[in-house]
Amino acid sequence: MSEIAQARTFDEFMEGIWRQNPVFVMVLGMCPVLAVSVSAVNALSMGLATMFVLVCSCGLVSLIRKIVPKEVRIATYIVIIATFVTVVDYVIQAVSLEIYEALGAFIQLIVVNCIILGRAEAHASKHPPLTAMVNAMGMSIGFVIGLFALGAVREVLGAGTLFGFSLFGPNFQPWVVMVLPPGGFIVLGGWLLLFSALKRRKEVRLAAQGGGHGA
């Protein structure tokens, strides 16, 4: 029995990382993803801030899910999320002023990240706190991976560095457009192309397998 429960919990966890990855599959919360993924460090810190807000607010939403009347639930969720974002905002300001300035208004804009409200509404409001938090954790890890994939590619191509370390030596001609806004759209488009190509290949292989069994 506990094994089944464990498997289910693991499934909840993996859902956000792979099958329903918020960045690559659901394409949610794009604004912070594209805006702060100029460098790998920025992307990671943004991801971690979002993770904190997501996990905490999903836990709280799930705790109070039976008390809140249906009509005012969205407003309640937003206020909860905004509270946690204010906390994160002040914490980042206290820990590293450099990162705070690099991320700018996008820390406060975590409030309107669709992933968080979406999870609170679609998952946390219907499940007990532990499940909700595990699911939120998986989602946010998926989000961090997505952000990092984007940030790393953009930093490597646009500045020739990763985490600030030079990769290609002094003769590298940076591909500046990659760290400018268009680069964000194009790199994300490229990742989505890659994923849809992989999905297509899998479908073709599955179809071939199914056909083989039938014959």
């Binding site: 394409v27 268009p182 680069g183 964000g184 759209f185 194009i186 994300l188 488009g189 490229g190 989505l192 192309l193 849809s196």
Partner: peptide, 9 residues
């Protein structure tokens, strides 16, 4: 979405 993103780029 991939195409829309490229276009937006």
């Amino acid at each position: 979405t991939a195409l829309s993103l490229m276009l937006a780029g």
